[in-house]
Write a protein that binds this DNA or RNA. Sequence first.
RNA 1: GCGGAUGUGGCGUAAUUGGUAGCCGCGUUAGACUUAGGAUCUAAUUCCUCCCGGAGUGGGGGUUCGAGUCCCCCCAUCCGCACCA
Length: 951
Amino acid sequence: MEYNFRDIEKKWQQRWVQNGTYRVVEDKQKEKFYVLNMFPYPSGAGLHVGHPLGYIASDIYARYKRQKGFNVLNPMGYDAYGLPAEQYAIQTGQHPAITTEQNINRYREQLDKIGFSFDWDREVRTCDPAYYKWTQWTFIQLFNHYYDETLQKARPISELVAKFENGECPTDGKPWAEMSEEERQQLLMNYRLAYLADTAVNWCPELGTVLANDEVVGGLSVRGGYPVERKLMRQWSLRITAYAQRLVDGLEQVEWTDSLKEIQRNWIGRSEGAAVWFPLDVPSNANVLPGAQAYMPQFDPQPVPSFEIFTTRPDTIFGVTFMVLCPEHELIEQITTPEKRDEVMQYVTWAKNRSERERQAEVKKVSGVFTGAYAVNPLTEERIPIYVSDYVLAGYGTGAIMAVPAHDSRDFAFARHFNLPIRQVVSLEKDVTSDPSTWTESMDAKTGWSVNSGFVSGMKVKEAMKAVIDKIEQMGIGRRTVNFRLRDAIFSRQRYWGEPFPIYYKNNIPYTIPESCLPLELPEVGDFKPTATGEPPLGHADIWAWDERQCKVVSKSLIDNRTVFPLELSTMPGFAGSSGYYLRYMDPHNDEAYFSKEAVGYWQNVDLYVGGAEHGTGHLIYARFWNKFLFDIGMAVKDEPFQKLVNQGMIQGRSSFVYRSKKDNNLFVSKGLIKNMDEVTPIHVDINIVDNDILDIERFRQWRPEFADARFELEDGRYVCGWEIEKMSKSMYNVQNPDDLVARYGADTLRMYEMFLGPVEQAKPWDTNGIEGVFRFLKKFWKLFDASHENENGNENEKAALKVLHQTIKKVTDDIERFSFNTSVSTFMICVNQLSDLRCSSREVLQPLTVLIAPFAPHIAEELWHQLGNEGSVCDAEWPKFDERYLVEDTFKYPVSFNGKMRFTIELPADCTQEQAVAAVMASADTQKWTGGKEPKKIIFVPKRIINIVC
RNA sequence: GCGGAUGUGGCGUAAUUGGUAGCCGCGUUAGACUUAGGAUCUAAUUCCUCCCGGAGUGGGGGUUCGAGUCCCCCCAUCCGCACCA
C-alpha cells in the first residue's frame, strides 16, 4: 500500500478534534508539565516556514512528555492587539477587529495543517473583553499597590496610607491629616506601581504615540523606523524599577541560555558604587539652599548647599578635576554665575532640543559649557569647576558626576577638549606613574593600585573603594549604593487598538473604575487617527465618559464633573496583554478570577518556554515583572514564570538570483558563464520557479511582463541561478509557505524536515531541496509495515533488529531531553535503513518504533498504531523503555593508531585485557608494516576505545 | 568600543566525558529497472595523488600517547548593548 499522507493526515486531524485528544484537564494523579510557545501576533502575511520551527520543537517535547506519563498543558492563542492592524485601519478604514479576525483565522488554518497537539479549548486573544478584563484588573492592582523596600515586595497602598496617617512614613512636609485630597493623591502617585507622571517619553510623531525603550532602536521606532523624540508628557508608567534587583536575582534560578541572561542583565544594568554629596563653593544664600537640598531627601540637611553624584569608582575621588551636570539638572539655573548665564542657557536649550537620534549619532563629539560655579571635593577640599554637558544623562544616577579624566574615557575626552587638568590616581603597576599629559587615551583600569590619593594611596583598587566609601559614610556625606539602567516602563499609548485603561478623572486626579464593572470595553470610533485637537483616537468616541453613580459608560455630553467624568483616552501597550497570558491559559474561561487557585496551584509556571531571542529585553522582562507582582499579591505561586527557555534560531531565506547582462538588458547569463560580476546585474527571482538552482525558463518568462521575451546564455542547456542567504521576506521572493509543503509532502514530512535542518537554537537558511530525503524516509518507514515482508526474518535478524531498536530508543530519548531534534531525525533514518536491510517486519520492533516516532510524525504514527490493531491514540502510548541487554556485544572492533594516526582496526573480545590486546596487536601483520619491525616505545590501551602505539 | 555566539566536504549537518573526523540527508557521478522518469533500487562521492601514500575541522602556536573538542594569540561572520559615570 502506498503512503497516502493526504488521506491519513486529514483523517487523523479530524478524529483528534472529534475525540478531544488534545483536551487537557487538571489531573492530580499525574505530574504536570507546561509547554508554551511565545504568543504569536497574527500578521497579515501568514506563517512562513520560520514560524512553526519553535512550535514543532515544543510540540515534540510536549508529546514526548505526555507519552512519559505527564499531564501536559500545551496551549496556543493570539497577541491580537497591535500596530499593524491599526495602521491598516488608518489606511483603509477597515476596523482592526475585522483584520485581526481574518488574520487569526488564516493562522489557525495554517497551524491546523501541521498537526500540533494544542488544546484549542484554551485559546485566548488579548483583544477579547473576557481576556482583557484581567489585564485591566491587573492594572488596577498595580495602581493600588506600592513597593515596600524593607519587605522587598508589593503591598496594598492602603497600608502606606495607614503609615502616613500615623506618621510612620514622612509625608514630605504637611501631615497627612492636613493634606487635601489632591495633595494626598499626588503623594501616593509617587509610590503606586502603576502611576501617572510627567515623564520624558519616546514620542513618535509619525505613529502618533509614545513608545517603550525597547521599542526604540537607534532613535527610530522598531515598527516602521520613524524618528523618535524625547518629550515631556503626562503618561502612565509601571514602576518596574522597583523590581530591578529581583529581576537580576531571579536570573540565577532559571534555565535560560547564558547569552539571554546576559542580555537581561545588561538591560537591567545593575552597577554598584557610591552616592556622594559635593558641597557647592558659593556664598550660602537662601536661593541656592532649597534647590540643592531637593537632591538629598534621605539625608539630614547638609550645613552647606550640596548636590549628589553617583560613581562606580569612589576610589578615584582624589582624581576629580571637574564636575558635570546633565542639561536637565535643576541646579543649573541656580548655580550659574550671571556672566555665564546666557552661554549656559543657550547650551541647555540646544542640548534639550536635540533629538535622540542626533544625540546618538554624535556620541564622539564633545560639547559642554562652564557654569562659572565651583564645587568642593569633600576629601581634598579642592575647588573644582562645574560644567554642563549632554554626555551626562538625566535618567541615570543623579544626573551629575564627578569627572575623573585620567580613568574614564568620556571624562578624558571632555578634559582634553576644555583643557582641564588630568590627574593619575590609579596605576597598573604599584607606584609606577606617568605624565597624563602624554596620554592619548584614558586608563580605564579596573584593577591596580591607588596613587596620589591621600589615605588610600598604595591600596589595591578594591580596598581603596571600600576605604573611601567607609570614610564618606563616616563623614555623613555619602553611602554605598546601587544604580540600575532599567527605566520604568511607559504604559500609555496614544492609539485605538489596545486595552482601555479602567481609569477616569475627577479634577484631573485619576480613579479606577470598580473591579465589578470590568471589562471596560473598547468603544467604537469613527476615525482611527488622533483628533483635531491632538487627543488619542479614543477622543473620537462619543460614548466615553464614566457615570460614577450608575457605574457605567455613558455619553461624553453628560460629563458634569460631579457624577459623570471623562475616561482615560490612552490605551495600553502591546506588552500589557502578553505579560500574563501564560497564567490565563491555566484557567482561560474563568469569569470570577484571572485564574483559580486550584488551576495555578496545579500548573504552577511554565516548564518549557520556546521562542525567539528578540524578546530578551521586552516581553521577557515585562512578563517576569508582571509575574513577580502577581506573586507578591498571592496570585501566582512561582516567583519566576518561565523555568526553562529555549530560543529557536531564525530561519533565513535562501534567495535565488538571475544575472542580467548590463550590455543587453534582455539577456540573462547562466551563473557559470559569468566571467566578471561587474558585467551583470543580479536580480532576485522567485524561489518557486527555481528547482535545485535550475531556473524554469518558461515560468520565468511568465513571471513578470518585462521578462516575457528574455533570452538566455545557458550552460549544458540549463540556466543555473546564483543564491545568497538573506532574511526571509516577500521583497526577496524567498518566502517559503508551509502550506505548499504540507500539500506536497504532508505535515509529518514538514515537521521532520524542519527539525532535520539543524539545531533548533541555531540560525540557519531554509533550503527546500533537502525535504525529499525526509519524505523518502517516511515512505521507507511506511514500507516496513508492508505485510509482504512477513516471516522473512530469521532469529539472527530478529536479534539484530532488536539491537537497532534499542539503540534508537536510547539515542532518541537522550536527544529529545537535550532538544537535539535534528540528531533524532537522523537516528530514525539510520534505524529505518537498518531495519529495511534486515527486512524486519516484527511487531515487537515496529510497534515501539511507531510509538517512538509519534512526537515527530504524529499522523503516520497514529495510522500505523491503529493498523497494528491498537485502540486509543498513540499520543497516550507509553514511551518505550531502553533495555541495555539488547546492546551487549561479545567483541569490540578496536581502532589501532600509530602515533595517534588510525591505521587499521582489529576485532577483540569485549572484555579483553591490556596484555591480551597488546599481544594480539603485536602479532598482527599490519602492525609490522607500521612499526617497521621496531619495538614500540609505548602502547596505550583504553578499554572499548582505542589502542595507540607510540614508535 | 563592550558583551555573547559561531566557524568542519559543493550544501544543511554529525562526532554527548580528549580516543576511528565527516554519521544522516541534499546535490553530484555511474549503473539497474522502466514506454518514460522529477518514481524506485544499487554503488561511489573531503581534498591531493605517481594509488605507495600524503594533507585535512577559519589561521598560528601550545598541552597530550592522542585535540574538531582543552589553553594562548590572531582572523572572519552573526547577534545583543552602546555616552549608564
